[in-house]
Design a protein around this nucleic acid. Structure first.
Length: 607
RNA sequence: GCCUCUGUAGCUCAGUGGACAGAGCGUUUGGUUGCGGACCAAAAGGUCGCGUGUUCGAGUCACGCCAGAGGCGCCA
């Protein structure tokens, strides 16, 4: 927000330095790091160091010389418009703003732009974000949730920063796991269908877990058990073959159960306020994938080892001319002629580039698939897609439980739906005590917003590349650095405004009050946070890091809570003070709402 | 064996090469006849895994160790 001021100051400093016979270098700027003070700061260490290197040394150590330069510049700059005070300390030069002037500018900018405050200019680039890729026939767990919330927030950040954004989901609706489930369903549960969307999803998960247990080789198994296991395996393989051949019975069975899973997925996405633009399905990539294998063989990129009973492979390092082992060798078609995940990913990438004309493609996928995706991108380069340079894997650490990795087979899974239900229960317990006047309907709705907010923030406040050991109590905590803390700031702002309106004030006020009084440090801190928001949007989007926005949102909420306690608004002694602070509260509420929206956390009016 | 990621307060985590390394939880203490206490204010708590470099300056960059997690041609 202050880049113009920064430029003016930098020019002024350069001319002072030049007049002193000092060679100026570009300056680095940062906010003054002291609470309750408002300004920007630069330092002279690098200029002093350069002098020393060039042999124009004054003989002084660098820090001393930097301080000398800072003092010289301070003494010669004189009065600057908009700057109330200058300070040279420890090699730094601090410029303190005329707080009232800038405070007014910030509040005005927020109130004028409203929900669009912080929105970046159009970037003229189309980005596709692929996330929400759970397998069907398997219920949605807390690990899938991390993926979904991360992808959605990334999409929101990119969109708000000015990219044309397409949200894509890619459920794995075929594969050995899927076939295992429908085989067991057909054999042991044929015709059964539980009532309720989530009950059906969990039913499939139970069947999957039972089936994998049956198919797993056990220690000390009797010859009868071994024979039975092999029989089951044969049946499963036969079912996969039938699916591949388009057998109507197997296809129907698959369609029905697949729809149960997709219904559950759609319900969860609705709960998370995620609207997917494009659905791709793994089952639809099979045909295109097979065609691609032939094309890659014809182009000499892939080697066909099928004549010798082997698979079709791509020797990536060799084809790229790499001496060092980097991408190794990949199988793109099994020796039995069936495709693999990688082959389907190649087919999907082609569709993204050719049908959706994306300039950039972001894959939000578990970090364990990092190697796999790098291989896919390398093959796309070999294949000749220029967009392959703009494929980016946003990896994230996986979610495990205190007792180890999640495993459906061992019945060790934390389901998203169960966590949400528990969250709502806990919030309701707090709510009934704190907000006894709320209607049951409203209470239920707010409880879901708060519970989901707590969960979302617990995932987003950890950096992408860190693994998470899921702790229910920590994730659903309502106090401290949590989603509800942010939501509470919004509610408190709303509460003040509601009271003001009830007292007969028309908000927002017709004209912006002048802010011609001495601002408290709490007001300055709050306004500085409001001013930061646009750069935070830019940074979070550029770095693909929701954490940057999550941290900021906490800083903003903290500044508001402190302000709320220390600075009277409706009880202000004079009406012009009250009016100015009311405008500030409106602005704070707006920026809180904007930040929460980007984090996919609801901003309730009451809680 | 090779590659990637992680290591910061008792625990969970932030931390643009720059000023005294910051939060939350937990511990201890204080705060509402007040705009909602899901809050605020404060105290205690640190060899930033270890070492060597680069730099005026390193938690941050490079290299080497140690520890943990993950990956490495027919799973997804």
């Amino acid at each position: 927000m202050f880049s113009d001021i920064q430029q003016t100051l930098e020019n002024a400093i350069h001319s002072v330095l030049t007049a002193q016979g000092v060679t100026p270098l570009p300056l680095k700027w940062a906010p003054v790091p002291f609470a309750g003070e408002w300004g920007i700061s630069t330092s002279f260490f690098h200029i002093a160091a350069e002098e020393a290197r060039a042999g124009r040394a004054s003989g002084k150590p660098v820090p001393l010389r930097a301080q000398e330069l800072a003092e010289t510049v301070r003494n010669r700059l004189g009065r600057l418009p908009g700057i109330s005070r200058l300070e040279a300390v420890k090699g730094y030069l601090n410029f303190y703003f005329e707080a009232n002037t800038y405070a007014r500018r910030v509040v005005e900018a927020v109130l004028t732009a409203g929900p669009n405050y912080g929105r970046g200019a159009p970037k003229g680039e189309r980005v596709m974000v692929e996330y929400a890729q759970p397998n069907t026939h398997h219920s949605f767990h807390i690990g899938h949730y991390r993926n979904a919330i991360l992808g959605e927030v990334l999409a929101r950040l990119l969109e708000f920063a000015g990219f044309e954004t397409i949200r894509a989901s890619y459920p794995g609706d075929i594969g050995l796991g899927v076939i295992t489930t429908i085989w067991a369903y057909d054999k042991f549960y044929k015709g059964q269908e539980p009532e309720g969307i989530h009950e059906r999803g969990q039913f499939l998960l139970k069947i999957y877990a039972e089936a994998t247990a049956l198919l797993e080789e056990k220690e000390n198994e009797t010859p009868e058990e071994a024979a039975r296991r092999q029989q089951y395996n044969t049946e499963r393989r036969e079912m996969y073959r039938k699916w591949d051949a388009g057998d109507p019975y197997v296809r129907q069975l698959w369609q029905t159960t697949r729809e149960w899973s997709l219904e559950e997925l759609r319900d969860i996405l609705r709960m998370l306020d995620i609207r997917i633009d494009v659905w791709f399905f793994e089952s639809e990539m099979d045909g295109p994938a097979k065609a691609i294998v032939e094309e890659l063989i014809a182009k000499g990129i892939a080697d066909d080892e099928r004549p010798n009973g082997g698979p079709v492979i791509v020797r990536i390092d060799e084809k790229l001319g790499l001496k060092k082992e980097t991408y190794r060798t990949n199988v793109i078609l099994r020796s039995d002629g069936t495709t693999l995940y990688l082959t389907k990913d190649l087919a999907l990438a082609k569709i993204k580039f050719e049908q959706y004309h994306v300039d950039r493609s972001i894959y939000v996928v578990d970090v364990r698939q990092s190697m796999h995706l790098q291989q896919a991108f390398a093959i796309l380069r070999l294949w000749g897609f220029p967009q392959a340079e703009k494929c980016y894997h946003l990896g994230y650490g996986f979610v495990s439980l205190p007792e180890g990795a999640m495993s459906a087979r061992r019945g060790r899974v934390v389901l998203f739906k169960d966590v949400v239900d528990e969250a709502v229960r806990r919030v309701l317990a707090v709510e009934s005590e704190k907000s006894p006047q709320m209607s049951d309907e409203e209470r239920r709705q707010v409880a879901e917003q708060i519970g989901l907010g707590a969960l979302a923030y617990s995932m987003l406040s950890v950096d992408n590349n860190k693994d998470i050991v899921f702790d229910l109590d920590a994730a659903l905590s309502l106090e401290g650095r949590t989603g509800p803390y942010l939501q509470n700031a919004h509610v408190r702002a709303n509460s003040i405004l509601k009271k003001a309106r009830a007292a007969g004030l028309a908000l927002p006020l017709e004209s912006l009050p002048a802010l011609e009084y001495e601002l408290t440090r709490h007001e300055i801190d709050l306004i500085e946070q409001l001013a930061r928001f646009p750069q935070v949007v830019e940074q979070a989007a550029n770095e693909y890091r929701p954490l940057v926005m999550a941290s900021y949102a906490y800083d903003l909420a903290e500044a508001f809570h402190s302000f709320y306690h220390a600075v009277p608004v409706l009880q202000a002694e004079q009406s012009h003070l009250r009016d100015a602070r009311l405008q500030l509260v409106i602005a704070a509420k707006q920026v809180l709402a904007n930040a929460l929206r980007l984090l996919d956390i609801q901003a309730p009016e009451v809680m």
